[in-house]
Each structure stands twice: as C-alpha cells, then as structure tokens.
Simulated scan of single mutants.
Amino acid sequence: MTSFEAGKTYKTRSICDSNCWFSITVASRTAKTIKTEKGKTLRIGSYDGAEFVKPMGSYSMAPIIRAA
C-alpha cells in the first residue's frame, strides 16, 4: 500500500479546471490521520492500494489527494 510520508508534498488537479491545483504538505501522521503544515488534520482513507485524503471536505466535486 502506498502511504503518506511526513515532509512530502502531494497535489491533484481540479476536476473542473485543469489549471487549478490543490496541494498539501504532510507535517506529521498517525495510523489514521495526517496533519498538514497549515495545521489541518485530515482523516486517511484507502482505495485501490493507496491512501487518500479529502482536504476540502466531502462533496460531489471535492478534490481527492492520493499518496501515489
């Protein structure tokens, strides 16, 4: 399984605008959560052999950042 690592930056494109990028930098992590450098705590999920987080919440067009 691909996991988030502290100190690394992960990013994804917006589903609506390919010029818009969402990114997070992992400051620390536990088994079930990560904390970003901005102090936000995000719950980790897993799908298809990789961990993921939803930094903007959960809604129909929400960005999903995978640890790939």
Rank of each mutant, 00 (worst) to 15 (best):
P63W: 00
E5D: 10
M61R: 09
K54E: 15
I15C: 09
W21K: 08
T25R: 04
I34H: 01
M61T: 15
R13N: 13
K38S: 15
V26M: 08
T36K: 02
Y47A: 08
S3T: 15
Y10A: 01
A31D: 15
S60V: 11
T25P: 02
R43D: 12
G45P: 07
T36V: 11
I24G: 00
T2Y: 06
V26W: 01
V26A: 04
I44L: 13
T36I: 10
A50P: 03
G49K: 05
R43G: 02
D17I: 08
M56S: 12
T12D: 11
T30K: 04
Y47V: 11
V26F: 04
A6M: 13
F52M: 13
D17C: 14
W21P: 00
C16Q: 09
P63D: 06
S23M: 08
T9W: 02
N19G: 06
N19T: 09
K40M: 06
K38F: 13
S14Q: 10
G7A: 09
A31I: 05
G39E: 07
E37I: 15
N19D: 14
T33V: 04
F4D: 02
A50G: 07
K11P: 01
F4I: 12
A31G: 07
K35W: 02
M1A: 10
A67Q: 08
G7L: 09
S23E: 15
